[in-house]
Nucleic acid binder design. Structure first.
Length: 678
DNA sequence: CCGCGGAGTGTTTTT
DNA sequence: CACTCCGCGG
């Protein structure tokens, strides 16, 4: 273990990496190819600073995704416990902490975070309050409106520009959409709500408008590092700039070939802009790949070469490692694909590669559902990242709603949610009750006057309302522990859950898991804030470090959530035209290119074994479809680098079997419908 | 004014 | 298919 001595960096790093680690002062732009030791460089740069007596709390590590943030922080702490005190996380969580700290200066004493659903609900309320003409048929729905508004903020574009580029059908409504945008903004200020975008906007404003706070923070965070810089947008770049204003000790790391968050306003131009923003930046390139063997990189390089925008780099495996040729597998349908892959995973595990070192990656969450069923059947433990999130499900939000009104009894959206759960209360009645709630000034008063004392009004629901009031009264007691809150809440909510959902048993399990997570908190408001900003992932509960590798779960992940990670074996499933590239990207060249980069990211996750798979039949929209292989693979130079196999399972229920090229002709050049006739 | 049932619509990635 | 929205019966 490296104590106070500086580690022997020259031994641990190649010359380019060494240079990044040693250049601690001034702006540095690192262009790092996939697998080139990006995280390793950050890890050692932090270590080097700390070993040279830099206070770890003056180092700030930022990134866009939660997974990358977690990985970055834990890797740094591996060598030296002092690195545990390094500050960092996602831009959003950092913004939350800073805003909370200075909230009094900003003129609000508390605020609640609106997650995506809440934000849509708030917009929905704004639409309803608005004039009639906005309710006409063609007017965009709340989720679309939220996307338009958010995009205009994150891409720094006007509503009109967003509509022109992404939603030309709604151009006629430009003025009305702008009005909703303004209403929504005012509504949030009114209620003390912050949505995700507000966290970034307000942090930027705070730094821009308040000279002394900007200076204070910039002096405190003397060394700033941003990982996955190609995923940040203008707003985040501005924040980085402001934070570094006093010292310019900013290092950003990124790879323009891995830019996959364009839909959120992320732009690889951010990387190109960096040297302009910080004149005198040192630019260092990391090009040697330590992760994969050459056959895997050959496929990835071939994909890059087929792209319009030419990326100068081409990955070369360190030490010229060679291994097995990646395979391209064809299946009849998603179920057989799932069966085969589950079988192969087991085979690898029996051959000594633990589940933990294997991953199945996909473009969209739903692609993995047949596989999840199959894995459960075979008792293969797995953890799911990305896609549908359990903290966004109705039952979890129902429970959280009850807790939110205790923390902030002005939280109208939460009130509405929990009131509507009461039999006989719909949107009108809940609105009326909220009006009443708004008249009172303490929580106790609300409980007693609105809920418990309401016998005079002999409505169908007054008894249930009283019961709700009693439960809220009980759990709002200051002395009660969080776990006990959940117990009373469950007593009230489980009958509703049973009534409302057919699959209540599964949902009940989720809620038990939620209680476990909450039990780790001593403050309810911290729990709720964390849950909105850095919620836990679904799946197997987080495993202890002491757990043996063989006990750790397999990873199922969207490609987006897999960025920055690596596994011995990677299965990329559903490589179908219309899924990757996803069908709605097809009318825009930039978006197709982004899909292609996404495939590139997926391919470069694999160290030793890489499998790409296609299934021919699927039923989207209730109709049977005949799928074609992803257009990105359908190039002679790509196909030549893949071992093609047709996997047929003539007897479902029996062990899947691979047979080489019998029923289908492996794809050579172009794809024909008749190739799929079996 | 709730809540059910039928019609219509769109389907992704993250904070 | 799954979700939202609208109109009508209770």
């Amino acid at each position: 273990m490296l104590d106070s001595k500086t580690p022997d960096l020259k031994k641990q790093l190649n010359p380019a990496q060494y240079e990044v680690v040693k250049t601690t002062e001034g702006p540095v732009l690192v262009i790092a190819g996939a697998g080139s030791g990006k995280t390793r460089v950050i890890e050692y740069r932090v270590l080097n600073l700390v070993c040279n007596n830099t206070n770890p709390q003056s180092i700030l590590l930022l990134t866009f995704t939660r997974r990358a943030a977690r990985q970055m922080l834990s890797r740094a702490a591996r060598h030296d416990i002092r690195c545990n005190y390094v500050e960092g996380g996602t831009f959003h969580s950092f913004a939350y902490r800073i805003l909370k700290k200075y909230s009094n200066l900003l003129g609000f004493d508390s605020f609640s975070i609106l997650d995506e659903d809440d934000a849509q609900e708030a917009i929905h309320l704004c639409i309803k309050k608005s004039i009639e003409s906005e309710k006409e048929k063609g007017f965009p729905k709340k989720d679309t409106l939220r996307k338009i508004i958010s995009m205009s903020i994150n891409k720094n574009m006007s509503i009109k520009e967003v509509l022109e580029k992404e939603y030309p059908d709604f151009l006629d409504y430009t003025v009305n959409i702008e009005k909703i945008r303004n209403d929504y903004k005012r509504y949030k200020i009114d209620k003390g709500y912050f949505d995700y975008d507000d966290l970034l906007i307000n942090l930027k404003l705070l730094l821009q408008k308040n000279e002394s706070i900007r200076k204070e923070l910039s002096v405190k965070f003397k060394y700033i590092m941003v990982d996955e810089y190609q995923d940040t947008n203008k707003l985040q770049a501005d924040i980085t700039y402001l934070l570094g204003s006093e010292h310019k000790n900013i290092m950003v790391v990124g790879d323009d070939a891995q830019s996959i968050y364009g839909f959120r306003g992320a732009s690889h131009e951010n990387i190109m802009e960096f040297p302009k923003l910080f004149p005198g930046s040192k630019i260092i390139k990391l090009e040697v790949n330590y992760r994969s063997h050459q056959q895997i990189l050959d496929v990835a390089n071939a994909i890059l070469k087929n792209m319009k925008k030419n990326f100068s780099k081409s990955l070369v495996s360190a030490g010229k490692k060679y291994g097995e040729k990646p395979q391209l597998l064809f299946f009849k349908n998603g179920y057989e694909e799932a069966e085969w892959i589950a079988g192969k995973i087991k085979e690898f595990r029996d051959a000594g590669i633990p589940l933990f070192h294997q991953a199945v990656l996909f473009r969209s969450g739903y692609i993995s559902i047949p596989l999840q069923v199959e894995l459960s059947k075979r008792n293969i433990i797995f953890e799911v990242f990305g896609g549908l999130k359990f903290y966004e499900t109705a039952h979890v939000k129902d429970i959280l709603g009850h807790l939110k009104v205790i923390i902030n009894f002005r939280d109208e959206i939460a009130w509405k949610r929990i009131l509507m759960l009461v039999e006989g209360i719909g949107s009108k009645t809940s609105q009326r009750i909220i009006q009443e709630i708004n008249r009172y000034v303490t929580f106790k008063e609300i409980i007693h006057k609105t809920f418990i004392k309401s016998q005079g009004e002999n409505r169908r629901f007054s008894k249930d309302l009283k019961r709700l009031g009693e439960v809220l009264d009980e759990i709002s007691n200051r002395k009660i522990k969080i776990v006990e809150m959940f117990d009373s809440l469950f007593g009230y909510y489980f009958p509703i859950l049973r009534e409302k959902f057919d699959d209540w048993q599964q949902r009940k399990n989720d809620l038990e898991a939620l209680r476990q997570i909450a039990a780790g908190y001593s403050s309810l408001s911290d729990f709720l804030a964390d849950f909105a900003i850095e919620p836990p992932e679904r799946g197997v509960p987080r495993v202890e470090a002491s757990v043996k590798d063989s006990q750790r779960p397999l990873t199922l992940s969207t490609i987006h959530s897999a960025k920055g990670l690596e596994w011995e074996c990677v299965f990329l499933i559903g490589l179908i035209d219309g899924i990757l590239p996803v069908s709605f990207s097809l009318n825009d060249e930039d978006r197709i290119e982004e899909e292609q980069r996404l495939l590139y990211v997926g391919l470069t996750r694999a160290k030793k074994h890489l499998f790409l798979s296609v299934h021919h039949e699927s039923n989207g929209l209730g109709l049977n479809q005949s799928n074609k292989i992803s257009r990105f693979l359908d190039y002679p130079d790509v196909l030549a680098r893949l071992e093609q196999k047709v996997c047929v399972n003539p007897f479902r229920d029996k062990t899947p079997k691979v047979s080489d090229g019998c029923l289908w002709q492996p794809v050579s050049n172009g794809v024909n419908e008749k190739d799929y006739d079996y």
